[in-house]
Amino acid sequence: MGLDNGAWSAYQQGKSFDEDAFSRAIDKVGEGADWVVLPDIVAGGMASLDLSLKWLHRLRGMPEQQLIAVQDGMCVDDVRDYLGPMVGLFIGGSTPWKLATLDAWSALARRKGCYLHVGRVNSLKRIKACAQVGANSFDGTSIIAFPDSINMLTRGVISSQQQQSLFNPRTKELSEVDYDCGWQM
């Protein structure tokens, strides 16, 4: 089970991140979570990373794994030194930015041996994109808004699990994955 920080919901409602609510969630379920998304600022670039790093030090070891939410304006060099088996990536940001940079984040995750989660995956196209880059997990809310879509999306997940992509960095030897992660400037 993953524990999100609530920043996206607050953003959608035009509210500020609720630090107290997040702290209560950590107290209640943090120890049992597989990972937690560190607090971030939606589309907040480096200010978002600064906030996440404050919480990274605060929550070290609880749960065992924390995810830094990368946002528009960040690049692989901004987070590379913080990542490893205990600190992974949550791909946030605007949809165009997320889709344009997903390959680079995936290559970085492979190079650093860290967990890769993609947020707001609500279509077959995005499920396939997650499978192609070797994301460990993804989330989306479309089945809540459109319950009839669950069968179609489930079939997409099953199909993606059965068909490996030749471009998935997790299927390559580490020496075959570029250190610069193919970042496009």
Rank of each mutant, 00 (worst) to 15 (best):
A109L: 01
A33T: 08
K128T: 09
L124K: 10
K15V: 03
Y82N: 13
D77Y: 03
D20G: 12
R126V: 14
P85R: 00
A10N: 06
A100G: 15
S142M: 11
K54H: 12
Y11S: 11
L67E: 00
L67V: 03
A43L: 14
G44I: 12
M62C: 12
T141E: 09
T141K: 06
V121R: 02
A129W: 00
S123F: 06
F22R: 00
P63S: 06
S23D: 04
K98Y: 07
D78F: 08
W105S: 01
L38W: 00
A7E: 10
Q71K: 11
G84L: 02
K98T: 15
K15N: 01
S106Q: 01
L56M: 15
M46K: 14
G32H: 09
L38P: 03
V133F: 00
S106I: 00
S106L: 01
Q65I: 12
I41H: 14
G93N: 10
E19Q: 04
D40Q: 06
A69I: 05
M46I: 12
P63D: 06
V76T: 06
S52W: 07
R58H: 13
N122A: 10
V36E: 01
I68K: 03
Q12Y: 00
Q13V: 02
W105I: 00
D18M: 02
A100D: 12
M46A: 13
L51A: 09
R24V: 10
V118S: 05
V76P: 04
V70M: 05
D77K: 11
L99Y: 12
L102C: 04
L38S: 04
L49F: 14
L49G: 08
P39A: 05
K125T: 12
K54T: 09
S23V: 06
E19G: 08
R24K: 05
A47D: 15
K112N: 07
D50S: 15
K128V: 11
A33P: 08
S52R: 07
L49K: 07
D50F: 15
E19A: 10
